[in-house]
Design a protein around this nucleic acid. Structure first.
Lengths: 205, 205
DNA sequence: TCCTTTCTTGACTGATCGGTAAATTTCAGC
DNA sequence: GCTGAAATTTACCGATCAGTCAAGAAAGGA
């Protein structure tokens, strides 16, 4: 068993993920990854494989480090509380100065949208899976009688997934954080009446 | 006045716009533009300038051909009708098989988000301008007393802009059109109570 | 017809792309 | 210390990138 690697794989993967997060797939060159990780080309290829494999590993890490904690915010007895926490959690993440602006999934799925190779397919699957996970949460709420009468769980889940991705786009393009806060406040006000809250929308603040 | 150009500038610009629309800024190479327009490199540089100028011209054309007609859907006396038409119009556009999937502005502003050169700045300005235009529409509705009591025009405009961009992301990534339809239906149901509609949200279909 | 001006064409630049081969360094086991 | 396998480094590959140059083709004005 000769010569262990001199770098921490997780730490390097973190830098890889952040580079893809910041610049997208195409604009992330191997040179940029070298600079971000401090590693040389061959070490990267030894550790992760080619660029697509690096991207896949970065997506996996993103799901663990970002996606899963955010989705956990939906695990709350009260749907209105859960949705508010979910939206505000996304807002914090999207604007966190310690991480690149926006969302890796939303950004790269926009970038790679119609591509037919493995990366494009991977991104489409990532998006579809995330949306479907949200649908299941709303269906469970509906089955538990936690949604207001007439609330459609599929509609609400699709709308929430849409809002989340819209926030990601705006967070990446718009330096004005007020717009995002207003969008989240508006979303909470618009969605709450469907989530078991008693107050009619005309009085929603 | 010797030798007129042998091609139609508007027609060529249309192909340029569609190429950027489909592949984004970085992944649109000059070779690809040559193939899409049928023109040679030097003709493109003569007609439009460098790649950034081609992109700027494509954005201008996109605003005229896509953005302006969509924004005109908000010009309606009844806010609820206007918002529904606006959302459904975007849905049609995003999924129109005659044009690339998604939205040029949303896609490229995600792609170029934090870039500090002129293209990045241009995209950020495009997004900020579009959002601000929506805010003015809602403010006018509010001033005309067309919004429900308690409805916040800034919140509603920010939310609508967010939803529009979220739809663009999903339209580009998700081949399932049902999700988008459900999102639009959900958005109409969630927003209508604020737009002067009388029906309470519990009965919104 | 000829000239001038522009458009068009194809070859070309240096830079950068993702990926690789070979040489060199470094450490575990003996 | 020696040896060998793996990690690291350096140099390089062909392809492609945006952009340019110069020669050839074509049309209006004379």
């Amino acid at each position: 068993m000769p010569r262990p690697a001199s770098f921490d794989r997780e730490e390097a993967l973190d830098a890889v993920m952040r580079t893809f997060w910041e610049h997208g797939f195409e604009a992330t060159s191997l040179d940029r990854i070298e600079r971000a990780t401090g590693l040389k080309r061959q070490s990267l290829y030894n550790a992760f494989g080619d660029k697509e494999a690096m991207f896949a590993a970065a997506l996996d890490r993103y799901r663990i480090q970002v996606g899963t904690p955010l989705r956990a915010l939906l695990d709350h007895d009260d749907p209105a509380t859960a949705v508010r926490a979910y939206l505000e959690g996304h807002l914090r993440m999207l604007q966190d100065p310690c991480t690149p602006a926006g969302c890796l999934i939303a950004g790269c799925s926009s970038e790679l949208g119609p591509r037919e190779d493995s990366v494009g397919a991977r991104m489409r699957a990532e998006t579809a899976g995330a949306v479907e996970a949200g649908v299941e949460v709303f269906r469970a709420w509906a089955a538990a009688g936690k949604l207001s009468i007439g609330a459609d769980p599929e509609q609400l889940a699709a709308l929430l997934a849409t809002i989340i991705r819209g926030l990601a786009v705006l967070a990446r393009a718009n330096p004005d954080p007020d717009i995002l806060i207003q969008a989240v406040d508006g979303a909470v006000a618009a969605l709450s009446p469907f989530l078991g809250a008693a107050s009619p929308p005309a009085h929603a603040q």
